[in-house]
């Protein structure tokens, strides 16, 4: 029998090693697996490389991991706080300016497709995004049919933490509205994808054509009825 459900958040985050690359889903406040991140605080893994669209989303979750000194590097598209009055990544900014954390700034679509390449078995690819800009410095570039391209490399993960609304025991996932964002591609790109979901439903309850992440890309599912 194939059963990917795990009974606790602690079990869901077990095995994340020191030095691991951890992909964390979410865009703004939507789709952030805050409960998994906080379980990882207790689990203790350190020296992590985090892949996330941002470098924090308020005081809970990623900011706590950074504040606890557990993050070596952040790979993200937008590390600044969009709203200075309600800073989303104040902890990151403090650590970054103190030289205590590394940042790799990646255009958002390049980040998504680097993960896609890793998950889809592709090698490096050429993209026009960032050609002629400082983010292309040090990278191989080529002009093909008059268009300038930058060579970008696949971005694989050891673990992915994502948030979805429903799952079954095979790991099929359904997301609510724009909660989906990076979830499907991160599940594809990581060796072990862990989904925290509002509800685990019986096998067969999800209409097959409505499944947004097929279970083959998901290794663990944990139910979290009252997410933080």
């Amino acid at each position: 029998m194939l059963d990917k459900t795990v009974p606790s958040l602690a079990e869901a985050v077990s095995g994340v090693c020191d030095g691991a690359t951890l992909m964390i889903g979410g865009f703004g406040g939507s789709g952030i697996p805050t409960d998994l991140i906080r379980a990882l605080l207790d689990q203790g893994a350190t020296n992590l490389t985090i892949v996330n669209n941002n470098a924090g989303n308020g005081p809970l979750g990623l900011s706590e991991l950074i504040a606890a000194g557990r993050v070596r590097k952040v790979i993200c598209s937008y590390a600044r706080s969009a709203n200075p009055k309600n800073p989303s990544s104040a902890v990151f900014a403090e650590w970054y300016r103190a030289g205590r954390i590394e940042l790799e700034c990646v255009p958002q679509g390049t980040m998504a497709d680097r993960m896609h390449a890793a998950g889809a078995g592709l090698g490096p690819f050429f993209t026009p995004t960032s050609y002629g800009t400082p983010l292309a410095e040090g990278k191989e570039t080529r002009v093909i049919d008059g268009v300038g391209y930058v060579l970008e490399h696949p971005l694989p993960g050891d673990f992915a933490f994502v948030k979805a609304t429903q799952a079954d025991r095979w790991g099929n996932l359904v997301y609510r509205y724009a909660q989906r964002n990076f979830g499907p591609v991160m599940c594809m790109a990581a060796k072990i994808a862990v989904a925290q979901v509002q509800e685990i439903v019986p096998l067969g309850a999800l209409p097959p054509e409505h499944v947004m992440t097929p279970g083959i890309f998901v290794q663990r599912v944990v139910e979290c009825r009252n997410p933080q």
């Binding site: 598209s77 937008y78 958002q108 390049t110 800009t133 983010l135």
Partner: peptide, 8 residues
């Protein structure tokens, strides 16, 4: 702090 988002 470099932050590009989806602009590029």
């Amino acid at each position: 702090i470099p932050a590009v988002g989806g602009a590029m």
